[in-house]
Nucleic acid binder design. Structure first.
Lengths: 224, 224
DNA sequence: ACTCCTTCTGAGCCTTTTCTGAGATCTCCG
DNA sequence: CGGAGATCTCAGAAAAGGCTCAGAAGGAGT
C-alpha cells in the first residue's frame, strides 16, 4: 500500500495469540510493521515508550483492561489513534469505548477488509508517510518538491522554498514565529530577514494567499 | 458539554428532512451548532465555503451522491472530519465509504448515543492545541491572538489589544482598575489615557459590549 | 570558463501598531 | 439643573514590523 518510504507502525495489543498472529500477518501483507503485546500492562509499556502510527487494542485484556489501557495512554498525552476491538457490541460498550479515548470501535467478529479500511481512515490523517500535504485548494507534492495547483499545473520549488512551505503546511493551524522557522529551515546562523525573503519568493511563485502574515507573531499557511 | 467557549460547528447533509430536523435538534442539545443542506450539491458548496469542525453526510443524496461529495471535498483539500451515515451496511459499502475519504461510517438505523460518541471521538482531535478563553458567547484564541465569534468568524487583534483583552478575560468577574491594566499591559511609563484608547479600539473592532465600564472603578469584560 | 540556478544579505519603502493629547460627551451628586 | 470629574472618540506623529528587490556569492552542469 504505502509505496516505498517507511512502513506505518502498528501496536497490536491482543491476548488471543492465534488472532494476534493472524492479524500480524494480515497487516504485514498490507505493508504495516506490527509490534504485538499480549496483555494490557505490556501494551501500556510499549505504547508509552515506542512510536506508533496507530494502535489496535483488544477490549478484554489480562492484567490491564483495554479501556483502562486507552485511558492511561491518553492520560500520558499519547495521541496516537486507537482502534478498539471488542466482542462486546452493545451500545453502552461502544459508547464507553469511544469515550474512553478510542478513535474507532470495531465489534468482533469483523471482516479483515473492514479492519483495514478503518485503519486506512485512521492513518490517513498522519502526515508522515503521506505523499502530499493539503495546501488550501492546492497540494504540496513531498516527493517532487512541487506545488500542484487545482488545475493540475505544477510549480517546482527550490530546496529552501520547499522546506519552508512544508514546515508551514505540516501544522496548518499553527502560527509559526519567524525565529522558529529560521531555526527549522535555515541554519539559524543566517541573517534576520531570511525568512521574510523566502516568504516573498513563495508568494511570488504561488500568489499572495499561500502564506498569511500574523503581525507581530509570525506566518501561517493560507489558501492558494 | 463543551466548556463555554465556542460551539463546535457541524455540517449535516441529509435529504430526509424529518431525520435532518431530529438530528439538528439532538445536536443542538449537545451543544453543537448545525448547518443543514439537503442535497449533495449544496452540501459541497457549504463544505467548500463554510468552516466546520465535523461533517455528517448521508450516503444517498440527490444531485450529488454522498461518497462523491466526500471525494470532491477531499479533492479540494478539505480535511474536515467526515462521518458518513448510510442505510447500506454491507462490508463493501462500509469499506467503500471509508476509502472515499470518510473518517467514520455509521449504519442506519443507529442509536443517537452512538452517533454522539463517534462525533466526540472525531472532534476530540481538533480541540487540542486550540486553547481559548471564553468571552461571553465568543472566545479568545490565545495562540493566534484572535477573537472567534459564534459564527466562526475570526477577528485579529494587535499585540496590545490582545494583551488587554486577555487580562480582562482572565478574571471575568473582576473589575480591573485603570491603573492595574496600565501596569499589566502597558509599560506603565505611558500616558494616562492609554487604557481608554485601547478599550476604544477593542470596542470598535468587537462591538460596544466587549468591555463594560464601571464608572469610577475601572473596566470589566462583557459579552460580545 | 561560462551559464543558470539557488542562497543569502542588506537597504529602502510601505503598512500596521502604538502612543499622545485635546475636544466632545457622559455620569454622578449636590 | 449644573458643574466637576470621568470617560469616550479620534486624528496624526512616531516607532515597529514587514515587504520588495538588486546584487553578491556559491555550486552544478556543460
Amino acid at each position: 500500500m504505502h509505496d516505498g518510504a517507511v512502513k506505518p507502525r502498528v501496536l497490536l495489543v491482543e491476548d488471543d495469540r492465534e488472532l494476534a498472529g493472524m492479524l500480524t500477518e494480515l497487516l504485514a501483507d498490507e505493508g504495516y510493521e506490527t509490534d504485538a503485546a499480549h496483555d494490557g500492562q505490556r501494551g501500556l509499556h510499549r505504547g508509552l515508550t515506542g512510536h506508533y502510527d496507530v494502535m489496535i487494542i483488544d477490549r478484554r485484556l489480562p492484567v490491564l483492561d483495554g479501556l483502562e489501557l486507552v485511558r492511561q495512554l491518553r492520560a500520558h498525552a499519547v495521541t496516537t489513534r486507537v482502534l478498539v476491538l471488542s466482542a462486546l457490541g452493545e451500545l453502552a460498550d461502544r459508547v464507553g469505548g469511544l469515550d474512553a479515548g478510542a478513535d474507532d470501535y470495531l465489534v468482533k467478529p469483523f471482516e479483515a477488509e473492514e479492519l483495514l479500511a478503518r485503519l486506512r481512515a485512521l492513518g490517513r490523517r498522519d502526515l508522515e508517510g503521506a505523499e502530499c500535504l493539503p495546501l488550501g485548494t492546492a497540494a504540496l507534492d513531498l516527493q517532487r518538491h512541487e506545488v500542484v495547483l487545482p488545475r493540475g499545473e505544477r510549480i517546482t520549488l527550490s530546496g529552501r522554498e520547499f522546506e519552508l512551505l512544508r514546515t508551514l503546511a505540516q501544522r496548518p493551524k499553527a502560527i509559526h514565529p519567524r525565529a522558529a522557522l529560521r531555526g527549522a529551515v535555515f541554519a539559524d546562523s543566517t541573517g534576520e530577514s531570511i525568512v521574510d525573503t523566502y516568504v516573498y519568493y513563495l508568494r511570488r511563485k504561488l500568489g499572495r494567499g499561500v502564506v498569511r502574515t500574523v503581525h507581530g507573531l509570525g506566518y501561517q499557511i493560507g489558501a492558494v
